[in-house]
Write a protein that binds this DNA or RNA. Structure first.
Lengths: 236, 236, 236, 236
DNA sequence: GATGAATGAGTGTTCATTCAT
DNA sequence: AATGAATGAACACTCATTCAT
C-alpha cells in the first residue's frame, strides 16, 4: 500500500473483513429504552465466558450459564438463539480486540530502524495486551475455539489467514524498504504469529507467570536479533 | 548438565517422563501368533484419527468410527475400553513422536557456532518432520486435544511444560557457554516452541502449503538472526 | 420394654429406623403452589409399579414406563434421577406401610388372654390389609425386590431383620408374662412372619383368591393355638 | 385318596407333574462314552449356581460363568442353549429336591396322634433338609427365581400351587380323620408352606444362624399345637 | 468337541431447545 | 419480557449369542 505522501504503511482494514459480521454493534435492538440497557445479555456473556474458559465449551451446559447469570432457562433464548451463538460472539469479541490492536508500521523516509523497532514493540504490546487483559477470553481463543466445529474452525482459519496475509505483506514491503531481513516473508509471518500465540497460550493455559513488559522486550529482541549468538555475520 | 568430558549436552529423559505410560508397546497380548497381527485395532485408530481430525472429538460418534473402520459396534469395545481411550492413545502417539525427535545439542569444545546451528537445524527438522508426516495427527495435537476433559488438558499442559523446561534449560546452558544470546531464556523457549506450533498449525489447520525444508531454513534463520534487519549492533 | 406402670408394650420405633430416610414427605419442593399438585410424579410411580409388578424390574424399560405414564423421555428424569430411584421409592413405600401397621400389643394387668388375642388379630389384619390393598405393591415386596442390587437386598434384609427382631422381642416378653408358649422365640417370629409373607405371596403372585377376613381368622387361630400358651397340654 | 386297605395317604405323584419336564434325566445325549462323563456340564451348573446365588441372575454374566467354570465362551453354548437354560435347570433341581422330600403321612387305623406327629416332623425335616443342604440352591429359589420372567414365575406358581394343593388336600383328609383342626385347610396349607419358606429365607438370605433340628422342633410344635387337633379347647 | 473374535439389538441417561403460561 | 416444565433426538456403552476356524 503506497500512500500518496510517499510513505508506505499497512492498513488493517483488510483484517476487519475477516470477521463475518461487524462486531461493533452486537447489542440487540431494544429500541425504546435509552437508559438502563438490558444488562441480561451482558450477564449471559460474562457467565458463559467464565464457564467456557474454566470447563470448556462442551462441558458447560445451558444450565450452568443461566445459573451463573441468574436468569431463567427461557430467558436465555430471548437473547441468544443458541449456546453456540454465545460462544461465537465471545470469539468474535477476542478476534476483534486483536485486530483492533494491529497498527501499521510506518518506516519513515529514509527508513529509521530505531523508529521501526519502537513501533514493532508497540504493536506487540498491543496484541499481547489485548488478550492478556482478559485471561478467560484468551483461554477461549487459544484452547476452546479450536476443534469445535467447522464454522468456528473456518472463522479462526480466516482470521489467522488474514492476520498472516497482512503481516506477510507488511514484511514483504519491509524487505523492499530494507528494514526486514530477506527470506520467505510468509513463513516469517507464521513464525511471528506463532510466537505471540505461544506466549498467550503459556500464560492462559499453561498458567506461566508472564510479565507482559518482559515478554514484549523478549519478543522484540528475538525479532531483531534472533535467539542464538552470532560469531560474526549471519547464517551460513 | 555438565558432562565429565567437559562438553555439555541436554538429555531428553525428563521429557519422556511427561508421558503417563510408555506408549511403545500398546498392542494387546495375543502372544501365540506371530503373523497376521490384528489389523482391526489399527483400523480403529486410523478411522478415529481421521474423524477426530476432521470433525473433532465431540462431533465424532462411535457410530462414525465403526462405520469407517468397517466393524461392528461391539467389536470397537473389544479393542478399546472407551472412545476416550482411542483419543488418548492417539494423543500419546503424537506426543511420543515429538519427544522422540528432540535430541540434545552438543556445542563441542571450544563451542563451534557452525556445528551448533547445524544441530539446531536438525532438531527443528526432526520436530517438524515428526508431525508433518501425518496431517491428522498434527491436527489432533494442535487443535483437538484442548477443550477436552481436564485429564487430557493436564497431559498436554505437562507435555508443553516439560518441553518448555527442557528448552529453557538448554538455552540457559547455552548462555553460559556463550552460544545463546542473553535474555529471559524461559520466554525464549516459549517463543521458540510457539514458532514451531505456529508452523504446524498453519500447515495442519490453516492448510498452508508449507515446504518442510524451507520452513526449517526460515526457523533456523530466525533463531540465528531474528526477523528485522539490524543497522548495526543489537537492540538499543 | 418395661413401662413404669407395670404394663409391657413394644414400641415400633426401632422398626422405623429400618427405612433409610423418612418416606412420608418425598414430594419435591414446589413451595408456592397450593393446588394442582404435579400429577406427573404420581403417574410415573403408578406406571412403574404396574410394570415392575407385571414384568419385573429388569424387563421394564424406561421406554415402557414413559409410554404408560404418557410422558416424554426427558420428563421422566425431571421427577426421578434414575429408574432405580422409582423402584426404591416404591419399595420404601411398601415397607413403610407394613411398618406403620405394626402396633404394640399391651397385655394389661393381669394379662387378659382375650384382649391379647384381639390385639394380635388386629395386628395381623393391619399387616395384611396394608399390602392386600395394592396387589402390585405387594408383588413388588414379595417377589421383585429380591435379586436386585446389593443395596436393595440389604434394605430388605434390614427390614425383615428389624421386623423379626421386634417380633422376637415381643414374643420373649410375652413368654415372661406367660402369654406366649415357651420355645425359641426367634424361630417363632421367623415362622410367624413367614406365614404372613406366604399369605401375601399366594395372593399377589399365586393369584389365590383370598378373603382377608378369613385369612386373618385362620392366621389368628394358628397363632393363638400354636404360639400362645394354653391352659394345659402342649407338645408331647 | 382312599387306599384299598382303608388307610388314607397322600401320594406326591401329583407334585411331580408340576415340573415341566422330568428333571431326572437332564444329562446331554453323549451316547457313545460310558465312563468319564462330560464334567463340563456339571462345572457350568456349579459355577452358575454359585454366581447366581451371590450376585443374582441379572448381574451374573456369561463371562463370569465361563471364567469360573474354566471353559471357553463357545463351549458354554455346547451344553446349554442360553443363560436362562442354566438357571432353569438349577431351579428345577431345587424344586425336585423339595418335591422328592415330601412323603405321605399315613395316620394308621385307628389314627395314632403320636405317629402322625412323628411323620409330620420327618416331613418338615426332609423339606428343610433338602434346601438347607445347599445354601446357594436355597438362595436361588427364594430370592432369585421370583420376579425373573413370566416363564419362571409360572413355573414357581405352578410348583407352589401344586404343593399347596397337595398339602391342603392332605389337611382336608386329616380333618375328616379327626387329626387336623377344623378350618380353611387351604389357608392352613398356605400358612404352613409360608412358615417353611420363611425359615429358608431367613437362613439363606437373612443369614440367620439357624439350627436345623431346633427349627424342625419349633415348626413341628407350631404345627402340632396350632394345626392339629387337641383333646379339648381350640380357638375361643 | 472346543474356541474366542465378532456381532448388533438394546439400555439408561443427557441436554439444547421449545412453548404455553 | 420472563418463566421453567416438557421435549425427544442423540449418545456411549453392554452382553447374550453366533460361527468360522
Amino acid at each position: 500500500m503506497e500512500k500518496s505522501d510517499g510513505t508506505a504503511s499497512i492498513s488493517h482494514d483488510s483484517l476487519l473483513s475477516a470477521l463475518p459480521n461487524n462486531v461493533t454493534e452486537s447489542t440487540p435492538a431494544s429500541a425504546g429504552q435509552t437508559i438502563a440497557r438490558s444488562t441480561k445479555r451482558e450477564d449471559i456473556l460474562q457467565a458463559a465466558k467464565h464457564l467456557f474458559a474454566r470447563s470448556g465449551y462442551h462441558f458447560t451446559g445451558i444450565s450452568d450459564i443461566i445459573k451463573r447469570a441468574g436468569i431463567a432457562r427461557g430467558t436465555f433464548y430471548l437473547y441468544f438463539k443458541s449456546k453456540k451463538a454465545v460462544f461465537d460472539e465471545l470469539v468474535e469479541d477476542v478476534l476483534f480486540r486483536v485486530i483492533d490492536s494491529a497498527k501499521p508500521v510506518i518506516p519513515g523516509e529514509p527508513p529509521d530502524m530505531d523508529a521501526v523497532i519502537r513501533q514493532v514493540r508497540i504493536n506487540i504490546a498491543h496484541a499481547l495486551g489485548a488478550l492478556l487483559s482478559d485471561r478467560n477470553l484468551a483461554k477461549l481463543l487459544v484452547s476452546q475455539a479450536e476443534g469445535l466445529d467447522h464454522d468456528t474452525e473456518n472463522k479462526l482459519r480466516e482470521f489467522y489467514g488474514a492476520l498472516t496475509d497482512w503481516l506477510a505483506e507488511s514484511l514483504t514491503e519491509g524487505q523492499e524498504l530494507g528494514i526486514v531481513r530477506p527470506g520467505n516473508s510468509r513463513l516469517m509471518a507464521i513464525a511471528a504469529i506463532g510466537m505471540l500465540r505461544g506466549m498467550i497460550w503459556a500464560w492462559a493455559v499453561g498458567e506461566e507467570d508472564i510479565d507482559i513488559h518482559e515478554a514484549v522486550e523478549e519478543l522484540a529482541a528475538i525479532a531483531v536479533e534472533g535467539i542464538l549468538m552470532r560469531s560474526r555475520g549471519g547464517i551460513q
